[in-house]
Design a protein around this nucleic acid. Structure first.
Lengths: 145, 145
DNA sequence: CTCCTTATTTGTAATTATTCTAAAGTAATA
DNA sequence: TATTACTTTAGAATAATTACAAATAAGGAG
């Protein structure tokens, strides 16, 4: 699990020539604070309480910057929504195909095999995404009832 | 590499209570025929030559059915587009982050580690997605020039 | 083979996530 | 503190996907 703290984030912004604004910090801390890989609109809804005038454009702009500087991982889904994960390390996203709940999972053997595979491809990696799709116990119950 | 042939697909449709139509077969064969994980609109454009009146709704409807019966894998991306892979086995999608080109890659050790990881999670898997993001040689050249 | 029922296709409108734009605001530097 | 460029904002524009109702066709019964 690789999670960036506030100070490192501020440094990252400066290193990359971006200014530090309260909105940018709040957006990152929103993603860090919740463990559920929120979408842009979920982040917007949550932050409107603290910043009533925060706009969608700021949310999207900041999310793209955070992705570009490697502070978060962006996960596009088939429902058209994109969700954001503050853990940029090699890990598995356990995704319930019914309710959409996402849980992170790390497995050392898999990480080793992944790194080995990357070496075999001889590619300069800029990121990865490992999803496991399943039905969570709650959603399995729903169907069988 | 798990690729379904035409006869198996027809059986799959019948087993799942779906009718077999020329459009459905053509859409599947379009995805099978090209090796580039096309998007819905790319499939639509290609098939309009053979079926000038084919509608977007049919494309989307069929793609969702193909996904539901396990004939294809659906890959949502951050740019809002969804692309379709006729290989539903455990394999890596090598994705160029600049031009979007996708190449499939299979690594036996990684497959073993993945299966082991799935057992550890004790989840009933319904699918998976393994993406490796990189810049292809062509796009790397573009940047350095 | 023909008819009938029902699923499917079609064309278009509606929806929704994301991007664009230009004016107003603010972080960072001197 | 003043300046300047970057950032935020609000709202319009864009583009992928979905919804809908009428027309069409697959597949089973006779």
């Amino acid at each position: 699990m690789v999670l960036i703290n506030r100070k490192d984030l501020i440094d990252l912004f400066h290193e990359n020539g971006y200014k530090v604004t309260p909105q940018r910090l709040a957006i990152f801390e929103c993603i860090m604070g919740r463990r559920d890989h929120p979408s842009a609109s979920e982040i917007h809804s949550e932050l409107k309480r603290e910043y009533p005038t925060i706009s969608q454009a700021t949310i999207y702009n900041t999310l793209h910057i955070l992705r570009d500087i490697g502070a978060i991982q962006e996960l596009g889904f088939e429902d058209g929504k994109t969700r954001f994960d503050p853990d940029t390390s090699i890990h598995v996203n356990l995704v319930c195909t019914a309710c959409g709940k996402i849980t992170d999972f790390t497995d050392e053997d898999l990480v080793k095999a992944w790194i080995g595979m990357v070496e075999k491809t001889a590619k300069k990696t800029v990121g990865q995404r490992l999803d496991l799709y399943y039905k969570c116990t709650h959603c399995s119950r729903m169907v069988s009832e």
